[in-house]
Amino acid sequence: MTMNLAKEEQGDMPEPQPAGGVAKMTARDVRVFYGAKEALHGVDCDIMENEVLALIGPSGCGKSTFLRCLNRMNDTIDVARVEGTITLDGRDIYHRSLDVVQLRARVGMVFQKPNPFPKSIYDNIAYGPRIHGLVGHKDELDGIVQSSLERAGLWEEVKDRLAEPGTGLSGGQQQRLCIARCVAVSPEVILMDEPCSALDPIATAHIEELIDELRENYTIVIVTHNMQQAARVSQKTAFFHLGDLVEHNNTEQIFTNPRDDRTQGYITGRYG
């Protein structure tokens, strides 16, 4: 029932597309099962190029599950099964002809807890370019490391200690390192799973600025528990509830004039 409701509403409303927007990724009737339990009940969603889409909703609503479908991170969980269609530039990412490794190079991911590898800062950034064979020689790699760190706003802080371990940085710096590491592979889409939940407000503000800058070159999907954050950084917002995509619209619309009672209830703090 809820699913149909969500669909009808989406059908009713004007398509949340800016003029000239192109759907970078589309999801159609995406269902995820963990064992016998259905965690996502058929989600339809378009992700526009060079926009930030925020996924909000109470804990356990399926927003992280949906995010992990977008670069097939659910494949690493034995009991998880994904149904439905997800496309990237019109190609089905679950199709057999598409290699998951290539997909993840195009759709990068930043995790909730900063997870730098126990290697030097330089090697952390160089990891992706090296495995994908993106670089011919050392100078090129140096260039990628520097530009990635610059994009993540970390270059000035770490340029003199690239050989030190990435795990020695502060939490906020570690998370920016992880973003830089992701950017170094030149993905087209960046998925962020509550990237600021382990960070203090200043580090959070830093990351939010960064997301806004990254939008010029990348399409970003961010899961967040923080509604102010969603309002600040995103152009589109999708509200999930109990495994359904309840409402998906322009962020401004969602936060000022939600169509669904549940969305209204969540953003005004009645539950969640």
Binding site: A105, R106, G108, K113, N115, I131
Partner: peptide, 22 residues
């Protein structure tokens, strides 16, 4: 930690690359 493996997979590393390099 699993997060290290996820980090590597998330960058498009294969399983054997993840094992060997991370």
């Amino acid at each position: 930690p699993r997060s290290l493996r996820d980090g590597s997979y998330g960058l498009g590393a294969t399983r054997s690359e993840t094992i060997k390099k991370v």
